[in-house]
Write a protein that binds this DNA or RNA. Structure first.
Lengths: 152, 152
DNA sequence: TAAAACTAGATCGTATACAATTTAATTTTA
DNA sequence: TAAAATTAAATTGTATACGATCTAGTTTTA
């Protein structure tokens, strides 16, 4: 009946919590820099996608970011209000909304060029380890996402 | 001027995004099980802490979970309303609020015993890899947190 | 081809996260 | 020891996340 009997439930034994906590802590490292640009972290990663490939439907953004329209619609409206993107219905398929960078949105890219490097510095992690970790996490995310897709 | 010039900004090269996405996907694996118990993921990890060591001030809970009172206070009120915990001011230091499991809160523990194992199954990851990953992430979190602490 | 099924976004409701401020209690210090 | 500084929670405001539902547009199919 002792609480110490099941280490499976110890907080520090949970991968899920290690992920949950580290994701939030790493995000916090971006905040001071993003604050200056008036961006939130989620807005920032959304822009990363668009800088890589512009003119994407909300659907595609959602697939890349693992976010749904409930999160993206209000976020994209804010990016639009800030002048970074435009949102237009796709004339080919009026159900779809195409998100495009404005000039201003394109220009913003230069201001964050150095950001990832600045953050890496604060992690005290060798680049190879960071890459390995990143790749493992990507595998994990894809595996889970595939699992979820085949379920009803 | 080509957008492909700076791979530092590619979404898939970001550790931060790998963390952000995987944390959310893993959390989603817990949802169906936790839904049955009427718990959210954050409530669940809060209970993990209390099952390990009962009678903790909000402050300590926050340190273990990397959450502040702005998140914990409403969450703990919900756990209290659900009958899982009690919240009482510490008579020794009235600033502090001690969180205690109720009988019901203790009993809930048995219902989640098998949960971590069930989730691991869906990750297709060998246990050693999971442990290594978890330990790396814990190091990362602690490093960042220490960094943040010495800043003004 | 008209109804049924499906799809993409938008909307709504709930629950975090977290910075900033406030309040009350405790410690420090001049 | 009384004022100043510190501390722990609570509160407030903003921005996600995400399930569920709704709406409008597109495809399928009987």
């Amino acid at each position: 009946m002792d609480t110490n009997k099941n280490p499976m439930l110890f907080l520090d034994n949970q991968l899920c919590f290690a992920l949950y906590a580290s994701a939030r802590e790493v995000t916090k490292l971006y905040r001071p820099f993003l604050d200056e640009l008036g961006l939130t972290y989620t807005q920032y990663v959304t822009l990363l996608v668009l800088w890589e490939k512009d003119e994407l439907p909300v659907k595609s953004l959602g697939e890349k970011l693992y976010l749904d329209s409930g999160t993206l619609t209000p976020l994209l409206k804010k990016l639009e209000a800030a002048g970074h993107v435009r949102r237009d219905r796709d004339p080919q398929d009026e159900r779809s909304v195409i998100v495009r960078l404005t000039e201003q949105g394109h220009a913003l890219r230069e201001k964050v060029e150095g950001l990832p490097a600045k953050v890496f510095c604060q992690t005290d992690m060798p680049p190879e380890e960071i890459e390995k970790l990143r790749d493992q996490l990507q595998d994990l995310t894809r595996t889970i996402n595939k699992y979820a897709a085949c379920k009803p």
